[in-house]
Structures are given as C-alpha cells and as structure tokens.
C-alpha cells in the first residue's frame, strides 16, 4: 500500500486499539473522498437519537390493533412509517410475536445485528461474547439470569440475526392493562422485552386492581 499521504497514524492519548482502528479507517475514507465528516456525524447523531421508545410505540399499537400487529410482523419499517417514525436507511426488520406458547429471543452470533432504527444502539451485553454464544445453546439459562422463568411447555425460539434481516420481539401484553391508553401501554414496554430477555413491566398496582376487578 502506498503511504504518501501526509497525516500520521499515531495513537491519540491512551486510545485503545479497537477505537484507533475505526478512526484510522474514517480518516482514510474522508481523505479519499468516499465519506465526508458531516455525513458520518449526521449518521451518528441520527443513530443515538433512536431509543427504545420508538419500538415501544410499535408494540403498544400492536397490542391494541391486531391488524397492525400483523403488519409489524411482516414489515416493521412500513409499520413504523404508519406511526410517523423515521426509520432512516435501516435494514429489513420483522416483528416476532410472543404468545402463550412461544417466547422469542433475539441474538446475533456473528456480530451484533440489532434493530437500531427502532431500539437505538444495542446494550453492551448484547454485543458480548458470553451473551452471543450462550443464548443459542442455553437460552433458558440466559433467560433465567435475566429473571425470566418459562414453563417447559412454552417453546423458546432463539432467532439468530445471521443475514440481512433484523428482529424486534413483540412481547405479550401484561394482564391487568385493559384500561390503559396506548401511551400508558408503551411505557410498560422495555428495551429488554423487545430483545426477548425480559417481559414488559407490570402496570401500577392501582391500575392492575381497578382493571382486574372488571373481570379481565
């Protein structure tokens, strides 16, 4: 490789190698005119502006509208578009519906594929080797460590995002939420429940009591 460009590759402070490598790559891509810094910055700004609240809105709508749930399972980007959410240039994303008899759990064993447009940047543990290796071989053990104990009769389906498609779990709607508004429902939908390692929050006690007294 020619080395006639005039910047250096010296480390910045105590920069770890893992950070130095993408920085060097970015410098080269900018230098060669493949990317410009504004585009990189805009993309990072967009990415970190995505949060699990986006996915939670989709799940809450799916809980109150079965047709929407179906569309979310078939094409989450189109479903997000219906709600006015910006999914940017994101990959194909599908919803995975949890039911009484099936519990989905998402992992990417090859790297860290994640529905970033709907959930924001992934948590550190999602990218860790232990999560990626153990989720495929011992999903129930991993779920137990996250506090989810499933009956043996519930089929655990691990979905490994190996190729081009991203996945968003549609968790089961918690009991006692019949009287809640869509916004109140969305507040129960956690990031982890949309990865499949948790179940949604339980509603506040008063709400649970008032709605269960209605015979739900």
């Amino acid at each position: 490789m020619s080395h006639d460009h005039d910047h250096d590759h010296e480390p910045v402070g105590n920069e770890p190698e893992a950070a130095m490598r993408p920085r060097a790559l970015e410098e080269l891509l900018v230098e060669k005119g493949v990317l410009d810094r504004e585009r990189i910055r805009a993309r990072i700004d967009w990415l970190v502006s995505r949060t699990p609240a986006n996915g939670a809105r989709l799940v809450a709508r799916a809980w109150v509208d079965p047709d929407f749930k179906h569309r979310l399972a078939e094409d989450a980007r189109a479903a997000a578009d219906e709600l006015g959410l910006d999914v940017g240039p994101s990959p194909v994303t599908l919803g995975l519906e949890n039911t009484e008899s099936v519990h989905h759990l998402v992992v990417c064993t090859l790297c860290s594929c994640y529905p970033k447009a709907l959930l924001g940047p992934p948590p550190e543990w999602y990218k860790s080797l232990p999560y990626r290796s153990r989720t495929v071989s011992d999903p129930r053990g991993v779920l137990r460590e996250f506090g989810v104990e499933l009956d043996d009769g519930v089929e655990v389906r691990v979905v490994d995002s190996t190729a081009e498609i991203r996945y968003l779990v549609i968790p089961r709607r918690p009991p006692g939420t019949e009287g809640l508004t869509e916004d109140e429902l969305a507040a129960l939908v956690t990031r982890d429940s949309m990865i499949g390692v948790a179940v949604p929050r339980a509603p506040e006690r008063e709400l649970a009591q008032s709605s269960t007294s209605g015979g739900g």
């Binding site: 495929v136 071989s137 011992d138 999903p139 129930r140 043996d152 089929e155 655990v156 389906r157 691990v158 979905v159 490994d160 995002s161 190996t162 190729a163 081009e164 498609i165």
Partner: peptide, 27 residues
C-alpha cells in the same frame, strides 16, 4: 435468496432436553 430455517435445539446441542427451536436466515 435467504431462507428462514428452523433447527431443533436437541439436534444442535448434546444434552438439550426440551422441544425448543432455533431460527436463522441462511443464504
């Protein structure tokens, strides 16, 4: 084309006891 393929967990891992499955998109 990519295919969603389902695998029986007990066929992937020795000692896996329940009827769970694993799905992956394979070219």
């Amino acid at each position: 084309r990519v295919y969603l393929v389902g695998f029986e967990q007990r066929e992937l891992w020795p000692g896996y006891e329940l009827d769970d499955r694993l799905f992956a998109d394979v070219f």
